[in-house]
Design a protein around this nucleic acid. Sequence first.
DNA 1: CGGGTTTGTGTTCCTTTTGACCAAATGCTG
DNA 2: CAGCATTTGGTCAAAAGGAACACAAACCCG
Lengths: 411, 411
Amino acid sequence: MTFGHDATGLRSETVRRANLSAIVTELHLHGGLTRSELVARTGLTRGAIRGLIRELTAAELVAEQPSRQRGVPGRPSPVVLPRGDRAVVLALEIAVDSLAAAIVGLGGEVQRLVRTDRPRGHLEPDAIVDDLRRLARPLLAQVGADDLLIGAGMAVVGVVRSDDGLVHTAPNLGWTDVPLAGMVARALGVRAPVVVANEADLGGLAEHRRGAARGFDDVLYISGEVGVGGGIIAGGRPLAGASGYAGEVGHLPVNPAGTRCRCGSTGCWETEVGERAILARARANLRGGGRAMDRVLEDAAAGSPAAVDALRITGEWLGIGLAGLVNVLNPRLVVLGGLIGRIHPFVAGEVERAIATRTLSPARRDLRVVPAALGIDAPLLGAAEHAFEPLLADPATWVSPQDRALQLRSA
Amino acid sequence: MTFGHDATGLRSETVRRANLSAIVTELHLHGGLTRSELVARTGLTRGAIRGLIRELTAAELVAEQPSRQRGVPGRPSPVVLPRGDRAVVLALEIAVDSLAAAIVGLGGEVQRLVRTDRPRGHLEPDAIVDDLRRLARPLLAQVGADDLLIGAGMAVVGVVRSDDGLVHTAPNLGWTDVPLAGMVARALGVRAPVVVANEADLGGLAEHRRGAARGFDDVLYISGEVGVGGGIIAGGRPLAGASGYAGEVGHLPVNPAGTRCRCGSTGCWETEVGERAILARARANLRGGGRAMDRVLEDAAAGSPAAVDALRITGEWLGIGLAGLVNVLNPRLVVLGGLIGRIHPFVAGEVERAIATRTLSPARRDLRVVPAALGIDAPLLGAAEHAFEPLLADPATWVSPQDRALQLRSA
DNA sequence: CGGGTTTGTGTTCCTTTTGACCAAATGCTG
DNA sequence: CAGCATTTGGTCAAAAGGAACACAAACCCG
């Protein structure tokens, strides 16, 4: 069962929009392709590609360079490059114990990236937004007035409504109903749209576009920080749910006889595989945060029985939750990020075993479980991808009518 | 996060295909619309609609009737009706204790439907396919040689690979790796394509298109028979997963301390809310099957403490599993079908309570849990919808070039 | 019966892609 | 180094399809 259509009428202008979108998306994802490669990938004719590239060049979204590729017969095809120097986004992140900002260009190149430590614990929204402003200001100053700031994307450790970027709850920050998108837009003074989404959702998006899940259409990304979050790619696109809250795997009930969760429920997955659960099993300092966790991992690597045992039990619970999710979502790839990615080497066996005994055999046959490739910056990069989305979906908005008129006159 | 594009070039011909698809899909889902309603729904101009309708009329996929609607000023707009008498599909179903077949016309009208009891227990694929052939033969005989048999769709209680209709496992039938689509195609001797999918997936599709979930884009359908299955609609389209195995919610681990499941795992959701679990709690005859279950429901309705208690406990487990799925998928609507739908009146309170304590508040705010509307025929109707899919996606295949040429000559 | 309103019909125009032909740029071969 | 094969870009006419406009038809209402 793979289908579904949008029952909306198309106009011939729509075709151009869709084709521009196809080209810009290909270039953004692959970083640079020859015209003839674009012909092959999009299925369009050379003539059509030529016209579209000309428009994108006029809009300064792409640039052409003489071919690099040598050694093949035939006239060389010029390379079309996304202009990451002209079309950029601002990416922001509020993580558990850091804040980050980056300027990312079309094509995915990270121009600048800054990250600062943040004390754990609750902090007023205004204070954090102000910190972000200070972090982002020098980066924004670097963006020229002529450059195209497509938008700003933001990753937050919290439950975010997709419509308007309202942070509904963020237990790690002590936030409830914070209209973050609007606050950040005002603080930065940028006119470009600000989009906010959950950290794990964006981490999954980044791993899908540029990390371990590249090329896979059905992916489950699990991100462990203090809590546990998930990002789902289904059929090549992020699974948002009705209001953008999908992927909250941390509160999957796996152990009704278990311990109380901070969400009010009992036996949530997070209570078994979250940071606190691991520290408790390893009899480490529960308030030690990241440092204590580093210690546990070092001990486990050194063979300490307490640490190894703590991770082994955690791995079993990790596998139980994953098995359920695999049965429900049938992904081709599971990507483990954050803390869960770090413990992966120690728990791979337990996870494999749990999946082997608890999932339907066909669903597990082609399944692979791998650690994340992008590390700590995954959510930040995902925020950039999120911010680029309007441009990829409809570049025509940025291809000004003046450009087209000018170009037609000169032709 | 709501986006995603298909990075494929569009040709000008694609526009016509897409617009034909939009019209046929609208008509199939709504059963009959005036031209002006089609203009409003598709966003196309009157002229464009006229040309497309003319083509579809020539292909005998639709027909126009003088307007029925009276009492409004202005020229009356003719009603365009899907020709359910000419374009039809064959729907088949292998349920736990019945077989069914139906002829369904474009627009969703059920022309004929037959269902026969089937003894529970294992039965050879060949035997069942033969029974289906006998069931379907008189129905197919009714389809005229000039009529368009778009395809055949089939619902099976089992895990089905979407690519080729291979039934990977069907515990209720004792099947493993049965190439059902091909077997049925040969047995029926039809040239139209045969598509096979899981019963719960198709039940969910049917409820989405024509039942309780009409108009909702994010839906979780839960179907209880002997086991428990699920069908997921995400963003308006069925969630298939990598190979079509998504939605196997029956084996979600909810109670690691629970009883052994026939899948080999322990504490699967199915072991707590499946038919067997209910019968066991009500101390009813475990081998009594459907009859015994009817008895339990009657007793509960009459107020028997044992039955009421059995259902109450079942309701708690039902709520626990649902809460997890709601957190992961963030649906707007949960539809309970089959056995789960029948016990819904008795367990609504427990389910609401479990969801209230175990899901994130924003995800539950706009959530509704309702019983299914289509009853026992939901999977069969879903199979019909599945079979219609190629026609809805690209009606141009059925609009022959001759028709177009002929019509242009006459114009 | 005439005005107001809505919608079908036909014509012309616009947009966008296609396809065919030629020119250009490269590798390969003798 | 000349010539050929190959691949690709450039140009222009043609085709396809929808949009826009003007007009006619069919209905309601007073």
